[in-house]
Design a binder for these strands. Structure first.
Ligand code: NAD
Ligand code: NAD
Lengths: 215, 215
DNA sequence: CAGGGGTTGTGCATTATTTCACAGCCAGCG
DNA sequence: CGCTGGCTGTGAAATAATGCACAACCCCTG
């Protein structure tokens, strides 16, 4: 029963998917859930899921399954999403405003606590309940906020620049929406989200799909 | 030299990343590029990249590297992104409007040609240069547009519903932004993009990161 | 035309991840 | 209490993906 071995990245992604699902069904009054029920709901292979949990010493009850409430708490503990976490966002454009207004974030304990931009026209504007601040003062501001998670929603050309500013301000992990690869020093984590890339892969799928068998 | 064997999904994702990068450097007048240069720019391991290309019979020149222009065209051909592709979008909310206004899409040949919603207040509104249409008429409209790529930007509770409508209208691949797992019939491709999941994984990283070694 | 520095394509070893399959456990029931 | 149907945890086998290492190749230079 390895407790602290290296965890495969796919395992973490599956746990996150599952966590999302558990928050869903929590509202309905489901008490316990089996790994195979999770498979049908999320597409995660049942044995895979059980093994994922076993990495962390999370166990269900044979013959019964997992206690929904407990399972959710345990996964939250693993992913460290039990407590509210401050997040700062750079780039108050189209995507940035959508993110600030996205209620799904606070619902999952991620709170955007500050928004920055470098455009004088944007600085000072109010986005939902936040005032856009000058990116030049990011470091200063974050010294007080203490956020360690940052989101890049600025243009690709500025992404590296923004990255450097974020890292300088003590940000330790970055979610990057700009369609470009950013360089970070060791000890800083990055995940890229690129819609175009997703569409490109879908486009490939599309070309390989058999013709529809409609009458 | 396997031409039409099963292609690993990571290979496609890497090609998409690389494609994005190539469009970047095309503007500057770079003629050729080596796999190791691609590695430093994108983080994709050089040998890996060469192997990825070899699946498709795309070859560079030993001692020289790859012709940028040609390579870009070849990858575009693989991913089938050489020609304009119509895309339809469901959900004219925060995220939906950001997507419609996102110039990166047409730049990469993806054109959002119609937007649908079920909220009477949204229907008829103009989003950039598109008028929001009633989702009830999606199938009818798409019979003319012939789009085969669909984007879901509606709420999670409606996602399955929207999926069914899309599939019914002849959509063959779906990019799903709703934080829920959707079921599709065989022969329909799906990719999910879930920001919360990304943040959750980052949150895990964060907890495992060594403390910053700042003086 | 020989030699050198640089780069590719790819078989093979290595590492990572998934899947199988089954012993062991649990609750309910007669 | 003993059996039964259902579900878990996990070692071992299978599959997938990556990284290595090197022959083959190309251009340039002298
Ligand atoms: N809009 C979308 O749906 C969408 C989708 C996928 C990816 N993206 C990517 O997200 C990023 C933002 O997209 P958008 O549509 O919101 O663009 P946008 O132009 O609307 O917003 C970009 C914002 O970043 C600000 N900015 C520019 N340079 C900056 C800097 N150095 N420091 C701080 N702020 C700076 C600009 O002033 C602007 O407000 C882009 O990289 C885009 O490719 C957008
Ligand atoms: N806003 C973000 O930054 C963001 C980020 C990540 C994921 N998401 C996800 O994207 C989706 C949309 O987010 P949003 O912030 O734009 O929400 P939103 O509420 O602003 O927009 C949702 C839109 O979908 C429409 N809609 C609802 N039911 C529909 C149906 N059955 N058919 C057609 N249209 C329908 C609504 O009328 C509304 O216009 C949500 O699932 C959300 O979780 C949003």
């Amino acid at each position: 029963m390895p407790r602290e071995t290296k965890i495969p990245l796919p395992t973490l992604e599956r746990l996150a998917t599952c966590y999302r699902y558990l928050t869903d069904i929590e509202s309905r009054n489901v008490e316990t859930i089996s790994s195979s029920a999770i498979e049908t709901a999320t597409g995660i292979h049942a044995a895979q899921f059980r093994k994922d949990l076993s990495y962390f010493g999370v166990f269900g009850r044979p013959g019964i399954g997992y206690d929904v409430d407990d399972l959710k708490r345990r996964i939250a503990g693993i992913l460290k999403v039990e407590n509210e976490q401050p997040v700062i966002l750079v780039g108050a454009g189209n995507l940035g405003s959508a993110l600030v207004g996205f209620f799904g974030l606070p619902q999952h304990n991620f709170h955007i606590v500050a928004v920055f931009d470098n455009n004088p026209r944007k600085i000072g504007q109010t986005l939902w309940d936040l005032q856009v601040q000058d990116v030049g003062r990011l470091s200063e501001t974050n010294a007080q906020l203490g956020a360690r998670i940052g989101i890049i929603a600025g243009p690709a050309v500025a992404a590296q620049n923004i990255t450097d500013v974020l890292v300088d301000a003590g940000i330790r992990v970055i979610l990057n929406f700009a369609p470009t690869t950013i360089r970070v020093p060791d000890g800083v984590g990055v995940r890229n989200v690129c819609f175009i890339q997703e569409l490109a892969v879908l486009s490939y799928y599309l070309s390989k799909l058999p013709e529809p068998n409609v009458g």
